[in-house]
Write a protein that binds this DNA or RNA. Structure first.
Length: 206
DNA sequence: GCGACAG
DNA sequence: ATCTTGTCGC
């Protein structure tokens, strides 16, 4: 937790990103009852969202799941997978939260700092924060707040389907994070890069 | 002391 | 996250 408090000072939430030609997705899955960690990263064309490249890495699990400390369990493997790409993506969508974290250092922030890539956290459930009800229509969102601070957005990506939690990871602001996630949606609740990575991370065969 | 608690 | 049977809806 102390390391996270030190790292948070390096996070930049102002837009500092290039033209987005490719968008990556990152996720982690486990094998052998949790003893093996498998990270998957994909790079998609930002226009048609097709997968251009993918990497999968497996390594011994070294850290337990502890709410608030997810980075220490998943980031090492994700960094290895990213290093295996011929070319890093212009933006990376991460499964889990970014700034919407107790110490503002969710997994997306950690990956952003470690790679200096623009990152966005996309979580399926809440970690912290409160928010007003989100309208049922796709594209609607409510601000996620922790006290007086806005830490993310609860975004409806599909009509009448549970919303996702979007928060900046590094090098971009809240509004841009929402826009980029919306631009990566196809016909499902989660953005395509994350779906592709999730599929690889949890697949029994590949 | 009692809940809440990303993946 | 993973395990695990059936069920609802497009």
């Amino acid at each position: 937790m102390q390391l996270q408090r030190e790292l948070r000072g390096h996070i930049r939430l102002e837009n500092r990103l290039p033209d987005i030609a490719t968008v990556g997705g990152a996720d982690v899955g486990f094998e052998d009852g949790g003893r093996v960690t498998r990270a998957a990263v994909v790079v998609c064309d930002a226009g048609d969202l097709t997968v251009l490249e993918q990497q999968i890495v497996r390594q011994p699990t070294r850290f337990p799941y502890v709410p608030g400390l997810l980075s220490f369990r998943e980031v090492p493997a994700i960094l290895d997978a990213l290093a295996g790409l011929s070319q890093p993506p212009d933006l990376l969508l991460c499964d889990g939260h970014g700034y919407a974290h107790p110490r503002r250092m969710g997994v997306a922030c950690h990956i952003g700092l470690a790679t200096d890539l623009p990152t966005i956290g996309v979580g399926k459930t809440r970690l912290i924060g409160e928010h007003a009800p989100v309208p049922a229509e796709r594209g609607s969102w409510s601000t996620l707040r922790d006290g007086d601070e806005a830490i993310g957005a609860v975004l409806r990506t599909r009509n009448r389907v549970a919303p996702v939690f979007v928060s900046p990871g590094h090098r971009l602001d809240m509004r841009t994070a929402i826009d980029r996630v919306m631009a990566c949606l196809h016909r499902y609740r989660l953005p395509e890069p994350i779906r592709a990575a999730d599929r690889l991370a949890s697949a029994t065969h590949f």
